[in-house]
Nucleic acid binder design. Sequence first.
DNA 1: AGCAGAACGGAATGTTCTGTTCCACTGCTA
DNA 2: TAGCAGTGGAACAGAACATTCCGTTCTGCT
Lengths: 218, 218
Amino acid sequence: MDDHGSSGLAGRRGQAARNDAAILDAAREVFLADPKAPVAAVAERAGVGMSALYRRYPGKEDLLRRLCHDGLRRWIEEAEAVETEPDAWKALVVFLERIVDADVHSLTVHLAGTFTPTEEMGRDAQRAGEMMGRLVERAHATGRLRRDVVADDFGLVLEGCAAVRLPDPERTRELRRRFLSMVLDGVAGADVTGDDVAALPGPAPQPGELNWRWRRSG
Amino acid sequence: MDDHGSSGLAGRRGQAARNDAAILDAAREVFLADPKAPVAAVAERAGVGMSALYRRYPGKEDLLRRLCHDGLRRWIEEAEAVETEPDAWKALVVFLERIVDADVHSLTVHLAGTFTPTEEMGRDAQRAGEMMGRLVERAHATGRLRRDVVADDFGLVLEGCAAVRLPDPERTRELRRRFLSMVLDGVAGADVTGDDVAALPGPAPQPGELNWRWRRSG
DNA sequence: AGCAGAACGGAATGTTCTGTTCCACTGCTA
DNA sequence: TAGCAGTGGAACAGAACATTCCGTTCTGCT
């Protein structure tokens, strides 16, 4: 087999490989902007025809599923990446920043319900939740994270950050970072200030309470 | 004119008046859950037929516009209500809590773009922005609000709170309050703690930057 | 050089979804 | 009791959409 260059710049095979990526990128952009967007919008944004799309995925749902599962894997990946960080607080912060920057939360949460999940996705989702839990547990141990904040509170935080949306993606990232920073200051405060903030109100979010979109028939 | 009771419990006229409210309530619930929901869903939720709806509004767009404008007026109303509160920080907090509880932000922001706005709405929107600005200005003067937070940062905050959504409305309210509380602790911190938090990153949101949905042809 | 077929663009198709209209009916109101 | 404001819900027309299909292009191999 006469492979023209190892990184796929070759004529036909290369174009196909490039389309693989183009389609996924386009799908991410389009479906993040509107989870109900038509498939044709993805093709157009990717600069390919419908057939290029349907050659790779049996149907719309499969594309959505793929996108979501990729997001889930990315989450796990990022969580693993910060596990070696000695400063547990910093690990948590860096993790959140990366998830927010990559818009992973939108991928995993907003797309849920638009397809029927795989069992493997269920397992990965649980794994992702556990890793977040461990991250928070570690941060609690340092005393830097206020004690009345639970792991699922960060579900709220990520949801909030994901909601910040502007036409310009780069500006969106900046403002999300800014917002995240505000929230983190509120979440780190207690020990530093010497405790003059009131306890967080209301029952804390229960595990799985935020994942209602994953339940069947949505 | 033989009016059976002043608060409209009468037979036919009363039913009509009751439908007025039922339709608006239903529309709020339905369109807040999904801004693109079909009109029929509103009629069903209100327990009325299509004709009851189209007798009151020439078309879907008019209903949306009405809902949004009501939200805008509510915003102004709430802002005026806290203007007499002597404690400027408390005024700001109470105002935000009320806006969040009433889901006014979703009404005014998420519905924008689904209809062409009136000029009067434009004026009210500007007025609403100004009132928010004054609220923040007053809070700054007390020193209780950290200095690097600008008025439009609360656009981010409200967007974030509105993004917290569960099937149960009451639980949604609780968790939004909890999230808001976290954010407010982050936003109040600086002066109280004696300044060991870093400055907020990124250029602050510019006036009008968050209102892009209001611009024509969305 | 030439062929087999992988890969593609985009129009065509059949179906579902939705905004709006229409009509027959009900029971106040005067 | 006559008339009509008010109503429910079926009917309609057209838009939107996922998916299929066909004719074309250009590669990789012989």
